[in-house]
């Protein structure tokens, strides 16, 4: 849970941090489309690949304006002022999240990886500082900036959802469940049959328009699961030792199938059982869908009540199904296709 610290202290440290960025020259200025918002990301070092490989499919070539700016600073280029961290070290370590009393500033401090994410929701700007790339866990590469995206969108009609999304001709389904339920396998089974793919792990949902937006072009599979997808084994793969999974970056090889947004038609909760006779859809209650979608989404993002309310509203708004799957991957797109015709 979060701790709260006086906003005047936060503001002073924020200004100190901005002074650091202003003294630097950005080596790369990139723009990305998340939802209908444009994010400018400034990198103050040459190699931005760790942070950009998963979001390369939503990069804009050039843009004059942006809605949010992120400054990414490598520890070898510059240090952030330490007085705030030193002063509140115990609080920052024990709470992980610290928020200013006026809710304007949010600070994530990860002591083990030495990463600081500092967000100012008033100026729509964030600073990400890390001591060294070598200290960052491999899984961070697959969903960069998710906390910043979450905090920016949480106060809007968008919300991040832990799940995958695939579709046909602009219509899509959300695959959601806790890890190990078969989300990634189901999504990749559809990708291998030429379906559109809007992402895995986290997707962005807009309540007003019932639209799912892509965030990350990544899929994660165990080495054993990967052997079932012949075409995927040649992709750029990063090993994730912590999660025992491999990260597959689908851009650029699957560029033509990566879709930025889909209209959501159904929520699907995959359930793998080798003994299942045939792949089939079974209607489930909205409560059961929320039960499968909300806890992992909320826990992974430390989300507020507003996010829970959006997820509950979504589950009540559209059809919800359990997808029973077995080892016959072809059955997954064939079965889901019945929802999109």
């Amino acid at each position: 849970m979060q701790a709260i610290i006086d906003s005047t202290l936060f503001e002073q440290w924020w200004l100190d941090c901005l002074n650091v960025t202003q003294a630097l020259t950005a080596q790369q200025k990139k723009y990305y489309h998340f939802g209908e918002a444009i994010f400018a990301i400034h990198f103050y070092h040459d190699d931005s690949c760790f942070f950009t490989q998963a979001i390369a499919h939503v990069e804009l070539t050039v843009n004059d304006t942006h809605d949010f700016q992120i400054d990414v600073i490598d520890g070898s280029i510059a240090k952030l002022p330490t007085w705030f961290i030193t002063q509140h070290l115990t609080t920052l370590i024990s709470h992980h999240f610290t928020v200013s009393d006026n809710q304007r500033f949010i600070l994530h401090y990860q002591k083990n990886t030495q990463v600081i994410q500092f967000i100012d929701l008033a100026s729509n700007r964030a600073v990400v500082w890390y001591a060294a790339l070598s200290l960052l866990p491999a899984w961070e590469r697959s969903f960069p900036f998710r906390q910043i995206l979450h905090h920016y969108f949480e106060n809007t009609d968008y919300c991040l959802i832990h799940g995958a999304a695939v579709g046909i001709k602009g219509q899509g389904v959300l695959l959601t469940a806790k890890g190990g339920s078969g989300k990634s396998t189901a999504a990749l089974a559809c990708l291998s049959k030429a379906w559109l793919y809007a992402g895995d792990d986290f997707v962005l949902y807009q309540t007003k328009t019932n639209t799912l937006y892509s965030l990350y072009n990544v899929a994660k599979l165990t080495p054993q699961q990967l052997t079932r997808f012949n075409g995927l084994q040649a992709l750029s793969i990063a090993i994730d030792n912590d999660m025992d999974k491999q990260q597959l970056f689908l851009y650029p090889p699957y560029q033509s199938q990566l879709i930025r947004k889909l209209t959501l038609t159904a929520i699907i909760v995959p359930r793998y059982e080798a003994s299942t006779e045939m792949c089939q859809l079974i209607p489930i209650t909205a409560a059961h869908a929320l039960f499968c979608m909300a806890p992992s989404t909320l826990f992974l993002l430390n989300a507020k009540q507003d996010s829970f309310n959006k997820l509950a509203h979504l589950c009540k708004s559209i059809p919800t199904y359990q997808l029973n799957t077995n080892d016959q991957l072809d059955g997954i797109p064939l079965t889901l296709q019945t929802l999109l015709n």
Partner: peptide, 25 residues
């Protein structure tokens, strides 16, 4: 009041306890 969210679906309610990392039917 800190981090307990709930939604009533009529025949079932879903409750999430953010602090403990538990969820309930």
């Amino acid at each position: 009041n800190e981090g307990v969210y709930s939604e009533n679906f009529g025949d079932e309610s879903v409750v999430v306890n953010m602090k403990a990392g538990n969820y309930y039917s």
